[in-house]
Amino acid sequence: MYDPALVQPMRDDMTSMNAEELTDPAAVDAFMAREGTKLVFVNSVCGCAAGQARPALRIALQHATKPDHVGTVFAGQDADATAKARDHFADVPPSSPSVALFKGEELVHFIPRHMIENRDAPSIAFDLVSAFDEHCVS
């Protein structure tokens, strides 16, 4: 586990885009119980991948159509919360950073780490916005 002071800016990056930090399993369960569309961002200290994924999400959340709720767990930092979040997409191999989009309880879109690596933020954001347009329209 990394020094909390080192990862705090990565947490702040998420909360500054109004993502709700889910730091324990109860918070994850409460978040997932909400109605509507939900996005769970699995945060990571990885400089190359998460360093593009967070800005991508920031861009995507400026789109008119977006999830009703946005939450984040921090892999390697908040292990129990991350494990609980992954229970909700248990058929998908764990990876971080990654992005899971739910409609109700159904996982409708997932962006694993390897689809984030080596891509710039606008490209990742385009994928996210496309998923929002497909799944987040009421």
Partner: peptide, 8 residues
Amino acid sequence: AARFGIWK
């Protein structure tokens, strides 16, 4: 694997 990733 390309769609979902791999199980380590």
